[in-house]
């Protein structure tokens, strides 16, 4: 095993994971850990459909890749 290179890779991966945890933790802190409210926090199915319809109407529903 090339140890130095392995640890370079580990540090890079840990850096990105840490960055993403930094993104993910504040919303949890706002809602509160361990209260099991995850399901209620997102946008509802109905709102999601409305949002999507709105985007479709705005964009004309065409391919936009």
């Amino acid at each position: 095993m090339a140890k130095i290179h392995f640890w370079i890779v580990v540090i890079i991966v840990a850096g990105f994971i840490g960055f993403m945890i930094g993104y993910a933790v504040p919303p949890f802190m706002e809602v509160g850990f361990g209260k099991g409210q995850a399901v209620q926090q997102g946008v509802s199915e109905e709102e999601l459909m409305k949002q999507y319809q709105q985007i479709l109407e705005e964009g004309g529903g065409g391919e936009s890749e």
Partner: peptide, 24 residues
């Protein structure tokens, strides 16, 4: 992380993010 990001961006599924980015 994924659940936290969903809360952060106010979505339940990546499809909404893709649509917002213009990839519908």
């Amino acid at each position: 992380v994924i659940e936290g990001l969903r809360m952060k961006f106010g979505v339940k599924n990546a499809g909404t993010l893709l649509a917002r980015l213009g990839f519908d």
